[in-house]
Amino acid sequence: MTGPSCRVCGRRLADPASRARGIGPICAKAAKARAAVHIPTPHPPEHVPGQAELPLIHHQPTLWSA
């Protein structure tokens, strides 16, 4: 169980479900609204439709990594 205050705004949490989540209902609703915004990934000008693109893996070692 998390602390009795919201992790986002610091308000006191009275609801047991909010306490278990660690975030109040107002902040949860705002976070859900922000997550719903989708920004499309831009394609380079030389992008060919149907061309396979490999996803970049965070912290993947390369020839230039030390």
Rank of each mutant, 00 (worst) to 15 (best):
R19N: 01
R12G: 09
H47Q: 06
A30M: 11
A35M: 07
K32F: 04
A66T: 05
P4I: 07
A66R: 09
R7W: 05
L56G: 01
P42I: 07
I26R: 15
V48K: 15
T62L: 15
P49T: 09
G50Y: 04
I57V: 15
S5C: 09
A30H: 10
P42L: 09
T2D: 13
G22L: 03
Q60H: 08
I23N: 09
E53T: 10
P61R: 09
A35R: 12
A30L: 14
R11M: 11
A20T: 11
R34C: 08
A20N: 06
E53G: 00
A33I: 04
R21Y: 12
T41P: 00
G10K: 04
D15S: 14
W64D: 10
P45L: 05
A20E: 14
Q60A: 11
R7A: 15
Q51K: 06
R19G: 08
H59S: 13
P42V: 07
P55V: 11
A28N: 11
I57C: 09
V37E: 04
P44K: 12
L63Y: 01
P25S: 10
V8I: 12
H38D: 02
C27K: 07
Q51F: 00
A52V: 12
R34M: 11
A17L: 12
I23T: 15
D15A: 14
M1R: 00
